[in-house]
Write a protein that binds this DNA or RNA. Structure first.
Lengths: 329, 329
DNA sequence: TTGTAAGCGTTATCAC
DNA sequence: GTGATAACGCTTACAA
């Protein structure tokens, strides 16, 4: 692989001049420039970004850590991040923590050794997040979807309380009063807040909370299936269930299907986050949906702001609003 | 951010000695080592991987280019790649080309500037792939899912002909002879080969090919919907359709649903690649399925072999076998 | 308009 | 055991 030195030699100039044309700094005689460009092409020269990063103390890279890349929510978010990153000349390091704190910690370590300019992370566990051990000023970080309470990081989140409230209110309006909850893990905001929204709706409409109707899952499909089974096997099962994320909803629907139960007639379901299958099942599924790609773009923009020197004003917490997608026929 | 120099100063040794303990090279007095370790911890020192990469001429990074990260096939593959990469001490740069040759080319450029040690790529278009312009010896490359015919790159692919053949044969066995095809783009092997399998099955069972029954899509949902509509609006529509990937199948099913058609009774469908919804629709969907995560692992292993100096034996083409998942009740 | 040379933070090769 | 020091391939004053 040829270097700037080789190019310089071939074009009969100094490496400084080559550097000038590579970076389009101007102040180079057109003639020389042409010669250099020709040499570059002929040698198939590609600047070494590592070397550049070393002297500039900047890698033009942002690290992205998501907890579950197979949850369709994240690929959409990632797309948004990439669009925005690319627009500003950044490349992304994407990693998957698998909802594991240990893994998240390992990834963080790797990315910092590689001197990413900033991080976008959906932490696996707010309460024991590896991010807590950071000097917050070390490197810009934007939290995505899951805030860390009391942290000074920027964050892009959703009004989970509001979204859940709307969903449960909808169920109540339809006449349900025995409403089960397949909750997310209480270790992360979306888990906690969606439960809050559920409780608030019940309270506002004067429905007594039945603790047996509340089951905590882990945002994965299996837990939706299992908790659905628990809820629906109760002596007096709920007539409706609000499931707190797409994957758990999927599990729940599978259970319902396996048992030969009928949606709506036997049990009504509403889920947080849209699903491919929502349109296929009969009746179609009403869900709380949110602007995934946009969340990614916003997160990237916040981060790039910081990287480009926006100094420590207050942490910015951007709260986006989800939408109830009513699909009753 | 502290450097090896700072640590050396604090521990009262030379940077060479610090480097020794960082890299566990031994030959350092236990006493000195302890002092150095202490300094490292106190200063929160993190080795600069960029600097290391420069002198070692190796980044321990592999670039991964996929054409559509929102196609659930790829996140699974990526997971496999990551597992294997991590096991061998590599980090991955993941990028999404969006089925665009131009974008793929751009990404390739970026990744090469960053001196990734190797690449795993699912090219957006075999015939005009940017990979074709490479000196094949420049950097190890493993093709995933989409081979480039005549190339000398290693590849991990699926027996697409066989998978498609099994699917169509299944339809024929069930009594269909008017079988439509929603094909993949002919610019990539999976597209072409699945069509080949379709044609072979028809031929083997003595069914005449109706060119009007063959429509080429782009592996995206919208094309499945559109082509489904075209096929099913024909004066004499097919009684069964084989759809060549998950997303197009999804689109096709949506069309069928929108039109109020009944699966099996009005039209039978088989898809290549499994789908979440396959188990939900009635009757459940039979599909051709394949070991996604394993494909990723194998690809990463092939690549790492090369990176670690496996010299140019023949290109290795690994062909994995898909499975027909019959879901008739 | 162009060149010289001092870094950037490591690893690796010699000496001592 | 340990320390100097020359790379690695760039950018960027500062000179010329």
């Amino acid at each position: 692989m040829s270097t700037i030195k080789d190019v310089a030699k071939k074009a009969n100039v100094s490496i400084a001049t080559v550097s000038r044309v590579i970076n389009g700094l101007g102040g180079v005689k057109p003639d020389t420039e042409k010669r250099i460009l020709k040499a570059i092409k002929e040698m198939n020269y590609l600047p070494n970004h590592l070397a550049r990063s070393m002297v500039k103390k900047r890698t033009d890279t942002i690290g992205v850590i998501v907890p579950d890349i197979t949850n369709p929510f994240f690929p959409e978010v990632i797309k948004g991040i990439e669009v925005s990153a690319r627009k500003h000349g950044f490349t992304t390091f994407l990693a998957n923590s698998n909802e594991s704190v240990a893994e998240e910690s390992r990834i963080l370590h790797v990315l910092r050794k590689r001197r990413v300019d900033g991080l976008i992370v959906t932490t696996s566990n707010e309460l024991e997040s590896p991010l807590l051990q950071f000097e917050s000023d070390e490197i810009p970080i934007v939290l995505l979807d899951r805030d860390i309470e009391g942290s000074s990081y920027d964050a892009v989140i959703i009004d989970n309380v509001g979204g859940a409230y709307a969903a449960v209110k909808h169920l109540i309006t339809e006449g349900h009063s025995q409403i089960g909850l397949i909750a997310g893990p209480s270790s992360v905001t979306p888990g906690r807040d969606r439960t809050k929204g559920y409780l608030k709706a019940l309270k506002d409409f004067g429905i007594q909370v039945n603790p047996d109707y509340i089951r905590e899952g882990d945002f994965k499909e299996e837990s939706g299936y299992r908790l659905g089974s628990e809820l629906l096997s109760m002596p007096s099962p709920p007539t409706a269930i609000f499931s707190c994320n797409n994957l758990m909803t999927l599990g729940l629907l599978k259970y319902i299907q396996d048992q030969g139960l009928r949606l709506k007639e036997d049990v009504t379901v509403i889920g947080f986050d849209d699903l491919d299958i929502a349109n296929f099942i009969k009746p179609p599924l009403t869900v709380v949906s949110r602007p995934m790609r946009y969340m990614g773009e916003v997160a990237a923009n916040l981060l790039i702001d910081r990287i480009n020197g926006l100094e420590s004003t207050e942490p910015r917490k951007i709260v986006l609003v989800p939408q109830l997608l009513v699909r009753e026929p």
